[in-house]
Design a protein around this nucleic acid. Structure first.
Lengths: 101, 101
DNA sequence: TCACATTGCCTAGCAATGCTAGGTATGGAA
DNA sequence: TTCCATACCTAGCATTGCTAGGCAATGTGA
């Protein structure tokens, strides 16, 4: 979901995605390449992302990923799931009262 | 963390923990035994939980778990981590603006 | 009485996944 | 020419959630 979210605003390539995630999370998520690249491949295999090769302004090859229609739909679901999930966790964390109303 | 949180208020045995988690999360987390029992064993091995055998009022044997001192300390850390984590995720999800302030 | 549900515990083993630790290649700077 | 930064990749380990079983004791209904 995090990777999808990073690509959501604008298509990007792996390295830029890692930077974007780090930036947007205020440094909280500093994902290594060994995490992100396999995720990108899995998301493409699931047809949530599509990719094509580009040349950077200097001439380096880049694989640029974009959300597919299914990817956008998936993000809608995932946002909902995340809200439910985090609410549930907050509920669990916010109830440490053995006695005394 | 969820399991620790369920034991935090009062010591409990596996089955009760599962119920408590389901109840507190409003049904969002309905963890199967195959998830919870191994977790309890791992948490005890990490000395975050301690356990002892009890007899239920009817006479069935139960393993009752309680938070250790380290377990309580761990919960303090985990709450903090969770707040940071969920804030970071919210930050990531809340920024799908390519253009236009 | 005999079957079944319920409570209560356990584990083997699969599948998924995060990450470490390596590798390749190119362009620019020292 | 040597090194750093950019940019991609993967093998394989360790962890973990869960399915799918099993065991034992106690009700409960037919």
């Amino acid at each position: 979901m995090i990777v999808l979210a990073a690509v959501e605003a604008a298509p990007a390539h792996g390295y830029a995605i890692i930077d974007e995630i780090r930036r947007r999370s205020g440094g909280a998520f500093d994902l290594p390449e060994g995490t992100v690249y396999p995720v990108l491949h899995r998301l493409e295999a699931s047809q949530l992302l599509s990719s094509h090769w580009e040349k950077s302004p200097i001439g380096r090859r880049r694989r640029v990923y974009a959300l597919t229609k299914r990817g956008k739909a998936s993000m809608v679901e995932r946002r909902t799931s995340w809200v439910q999930f985090s609410s549930a966790v907050n509920g669990l964390l916010a109830e440490p009262r053995p006695c005394r109303t």
